[in-house]
Design a protein around this nucleic acid. Sequence first.
DNA 1: TTGGAATGTCAACAAAGCTGACTTAATATG
DNA 2: CATATTAAGTCAGCTTTGTTGACATTCCAA
Lengths: 165, 165
Amino acid sequence: MAEFQGGENLLFLTDEQLRQGIEAMFFAYRGFTADPDRILATMAYGRAHHRAVHFISRSPGTTVNNLLNILGVTKQSLNRVLRTLVEDGLVDSRVGKADKRERHLFLTDAGEALERKLSDAQRARMRAAYRAAGPEAVAGFRQVLEAMMEPELRRRYYGIRENEV
Amino acid sequence: MAEFQGGENLLFLTDEQLRQGIEAMFFAYRGFTADPDRILATMAYGRAHHRAVHFISRSPGTTVNNLLNILGVTKQSLNRVLRTLVEDGLVDSRVGKADKRERHLFLTDAGEALERKLSDAQRARMRAAYRAAGPEAVAGFRQVLEAMMEPELRRRYYGIRENEV
DNA sequence: TTGGAATGTCAACAAAGCTGACTTAATATG
DNA sequence: CATATTAAGTCAGCTTTGTTGACATTCCAA
C-alpha cells in the first residue's frame, strides 16, 4: 500500500492526513488556551496579558524589546498590556543600569501569583495529555512542533535566554 | 535518574518540560497560521473567513448550526463572516429541503479556489514539518494533540461527519 | 394552534492586533 | 563634540473578531 506513495511509508503525507493534522492543531490549540482563558475571563485580563506574564516569568529582567521580538506584536499593542500590568502592580519595570534607555521587566509577588495560577491550569492539561500519550509520543509531538515554527523563531527559541539584567 | 520521579520515566512531566511544550505550542501555532495569514492580508479577509471556508469545504452542505458548534463562536460573529462570503460569491447558502429553517452551506467555484489557495499554503508547511520529523513523530504528535482537546470536541472531531444535505 | 427551535439582523461594545506620527532620553558613531 | 540611532512610551485612529442583548421571521411538532 505504501508502494503507491513512492516505495516509502509516506502515507502520513496524504492530503487527507495533512487535513486531519491541521484540524487537530486547530482543536488542540483551543483546548490549550481554554483553561487560562476561563480564569482570565473572571478578571480584566486577556490572552495577551497571559503571554506577557508568561515570558517575563521565564526570563525575569527581559527588556521590552526582547519581549516584542518574542511575542511578535507591535510596541503599541504590547505597551497597552504592560501599562495595565504595571499599574495593577503585577509587573515591575526598572530602568537599566548599563543602558538607561532600557526597561527591565520583573513580576511582583502578585504577578508571580497570577502567573502560577494561569500556568498551573495550562500545565495540568499539558501534563494530562503527555501522560495519556506517553514519552515517545511527546518526543514526536515536540519534533513536529519544532519543525512547524518559523525558522528564525526556532533559532531564537533554542538560542540564548535573555535574562541578564 | 528516572527513579527520582517515581520509578518510571516521568522526566517528560517536569514543570520545565511542560513549560517548553507550552512554548513550543505557542510558537508552532504562529507558524501554522503564518502562511494563510499572509495570503489573507492581501485581501479583505481574516482568519475567521479561512476557518469557515475550511470547514465548509470539509463538510459541504453543513448547516450554520453545525459550523457554530465546530468553530465555537457566536452566531452573530459567524454570521458577519458568512455574510461577506455569500455577498462575495464564495459561499452558497441553500435553504434545506427537509427542514426549510436550516441553511446548507457550499463553496462556489471561487470559494473552492480560495480554499485551495489557503490550504495549499498551510499543507505545504505541515508536509515539510511531517517530512522533517518522520512518521513515528507524526503519530506521537497526533496522539498528544488529541489528548489536549476538550473531550466533548474530541468526540465530535472523531465522530460523524456532518455532510448530509 | 401555539410553543419552541433555527436563523438572521440590529446595535453596542471589548480585546487585541495594526499604522503613522511624535517625544524623550540615552547611546553610539563619525 | 555634533549628529544619528536606538529604546521606550504615547496619541490618534483603524480593523478583525469576538462578546451581549433584543427582536423578527419562519416553520416544525406537540
